[in-house]
């Protein structure tokens, strides 16, 4: 579905160095990226801001011409055959809208049918399916400008799917969404990937997106692929621990000796306890029950190693080799 070989993209940046003098400097956004995505895969593409994610996405969709290397998407050269490719892929940008701001949502869909030249019957069928699964009927007749972010994103995803793309590229699709909206969207995308076999490539800062959707994760930083593999393996490899934060009703002695807990830290004289545990050894739910048996619990929360942490560790791990 996607073949990328030694892909590179540099940007020319002009910097003021004197009153009239300006120096020309080349900045590499993507240095040398190679990967392959097969049909039906779901791949999470992550990395910190400025790592080169969006640049890669833009080259995959043909918006940006690579300065070096080779890209093939659906067997096409994206920048040369942009229009043809556009008919075969769907793109969702979490921070941008492809809907017509002033028009009711359904009219955007109808317009897209004409732009993508989709057969009316097939279009109606897919729209009905998305409407059902994403609950669009409540606001289908509402102008896009009046939709909430969660509603709009559901509309965006639908808009990207009406021409039955083989590949759906999502650039931070869950950004800014509340938990329920995120979950709903993830569920839908997982279903899409599983039942229709639509290939998914998504960039995100939310590890849960990857966890729910992608069997494979690619980590990029400084324009290079740092790691590529099943998420569970990568996370296990670099940061196998989660932390349960427990706020107790009364200060207590450190809650040592719970199964699966690697270390215990206390704060506020034992009022707050941070239990690090291995995800393969126990679950947060089991741990909460055990804690509640030992002391009255006021509040709990679970801290995941955040994506920056994972990337940082991957980076630290790789740097001696590089």
């Amino acid at each position: 579905m996607i073949e990328v070989e030694d892909l590179g993209r540099t940007f020319v940046v002009r910097r003021k160095t004197g009153l009239l003098r300006r120096s020309r400097e080349e900045v590499a956004a993507v240095t040398s990226v190679s990967f392959r995505v097969d049909a039906g895969e779901a791949v999470g593409y992550i990395g910190p801001n400025g790592a080169g994610k969006s640049t890669t996405i833009k080259m995959l969709t043909g918006i940006l011409v690579p300065t070096s290397g080779r890209v093939r998407v659906c067997g096409l050269d994206p920048s040369r055959q942009r229009t043809e490719l556009a008919k075969r892929i769907g793109v969702v940008f979490g921070q941008r809208s492809q809907l017509w701001w002033d028009l009711p949502l359904v009219e955007s869909f109808e317009l897209l049918r004409h732009i993508y030249r989709v057969d009316p019957a097939a279009h109606a069928r897919r729209l009905a399916e998305c409407t059902e699964l994403l609950g669009l009927h409540e606001f289908a007749a509402t102008p896009v400008r009046q939709l909430s972010l969660g509603q709009r994103m559901r509309g965006e995803v639908t808009a990207a799917l009406l021409h039955a793309p083989e590949l759906l590229v999502l650039d931070e699709p869950t950004i800014g969404l509340d938990l329920e909206s995120k979950e709903r969207l993830r569920e839908f995308l997982a279903e899409l990937n599983a039942s229709r076999g639509t290939t998914l490539v998504l960039t995100t800062h939310d590890l849960d997106d990857i966890e729910r959707l992608c069997r494979r994760m690619m980590v990029i930083d400084h324009g290079q692929v740092l790691a590529d593999g099943p998420l569970a393996e990568l996370r296990e490899e670099v940061s196998p621990e989660r932390t349960l934060v427990v706020d107790l009703e009364r200060p207590a002695a450190p809650l040592d000796g719970l199964p699966g807990v690697v270390s215990v830290r206390t704060e506020a004289g034992g009022l707050r306890q941070l239990l690090s545990f291995r995800r393969d050894a126990t679950t947060a739910a089991r741990l909460i029950t055990l804690v509640a048996d030992r002391a009255p619990v006021h509040d709990v929360s679970v801290i995941e190693p955040d994506i920056d942490e994972v990337v940082k560790r991957l980076y630290q791990r790789r740097s001696p080799v590089a």
């Binding site: 833009k58 043909g62 918006i63 942009r82 556009a86 008919k87 892929i89 492809q98």
Partner: peptide
């Protein structure tokens, strides 16, 4: 703002 990427990913 870069929103033009949307316009450029359309078959038109």
């Amino acid at each position: 703002t870069g929103d033009v990427v949307i316009d450029l990913t359309r078959p038109w």
